[in-house]
């Protein structure tokens, strides 16, 4: 069961519920957080998560406790979920305004400064973007407001390069960002895969391979950011581990024979509880 769909989507896909992009939901976050002591609740959540991650190497005995706390605040304040390109396109139709900006994760992990329209890999959604200039250091390199059509072109551009689209909440369930992510420079993916901090949830879909159509070219293998796809040597075909699959659809669009399709996670009994 998709927990957010039940609590924030009336049982349907929660990020297709227009309410989760609304101004009123943005205002809620200030009252939501119980652990920020009056500071910026998102910043406080990021610090708690970072403390847990660093504890894995500095004081491993403290890690399980800190990880538990990090999980809680991450899901309350800065949760994410992988979405397919198609769903990302629906999202940009629901949200306004849409602004492109530099990715904060890549600044942190690789010192990469994205300062022009070609290099922006992050997208801010909704009313919060109008006051971006309060924190120019967060939006280093400026922001670029775009139309829905431009936003879709931007999504396709990065999707074709192999990036995973994932939404980010700013005080769940308010959806304030749509990022183009990869491993290891996306912190959310890294926290989930390397530290078991479930800030990023798996998508509503999961990749399924049609063995008859697969030609064994291996194009999809290198595109998977989650290590879910392997080349099975003995049968000369691709193998997709659906438990590792996050449902981004990056493999589907690159497959030359159309052998990969995305199926609804909820239709598979073994996967419908795996988020």
């Amino acid at each position: 069961m998709c927990q957010f769909c039940m609590t924030h989507g009336y049982g349907k896909v929660w990020y297709k519920n227009a309410m989760n992009y609304a101004r009123q939901m943005y205002k809620l976050k200030k009252h939501k957080s119980s652990h920020d002591h009056g500071r910026d609740p998102e910043g406080a959540a990021a610090l708690i998560i970072a403390e847990a991650v660093e504890a894995r190497g500095l004081k491993p005995e403290e890690f399980p406790r800190l990880r538990h706390m990090a999980n809680k605040v991450a899901q309350e304040m800065v949760a994410g979920q992988v979405v397919t390109l198609e769903d990302a396109m629906t999202m940009v139709e629901l949200a306004s305004p849409i602004a492109l900006m530099g990715c904060i994760c890549r600044k942190i992990t690789r010192g990469r400064l994205e300062d022009n329209e070609d290099s922006y890999t992050c997208m801010g959604l909704g009313i919060g973007m109008f006051k971006w200039d309060r924190w120019p250091e967060r939006y280093k390199g400026g922001v670029h407001f775009v139309t829905v059509e431009e936003a879709k072109q931007w999504l396709v551009k990065w999707h074709n390069k192999g990036m995973v689209a994932s939404l980010m909440t700013h005080g769940t369930p308010y959806i304030g960002g749509l990022c183009m992510c990869d491993y290891p420079d996306c912190l959310a993916i890294r926290y989930r895969l390397d530290y078991g901090i479930n800030q990023l949830f798996k998508g509503e879909f999961v990749a399924k391979l049609d063995y008859d159509k697969c030609c064994g070219c291996g194009t999809c293998v290198e595109r998977c950011q989650f290590g879910a796809i392997k080349f099975e040597v003995t049968i000369e075909k691709t193998n997709i581990d659906q438990f590792r699959c996050f449902g981004c659809g990056v493999c589907m669009t690159t497959c030359p024979t159309g052998a990969i399709s995305m199926v609804d996670r909820k239709t598979l009994p073994g996967l419908r509880e795996v988020w």
Partner: peptide, 24 residues
């Protein structure tokens, strides 16, 4: 930051001032 194969390092912004962009 750029060459570590394991991406071990993180860049922390120490100077984070409202309305001011930090000079690199």
């Amino acid at each position: 930051l750029e060459l570590c194969p394991q991406a071990v390092f993180a860049l922390i912004t120490l100077k984070y001032v409202k309305y001011v962009e930090t000079n690199i």
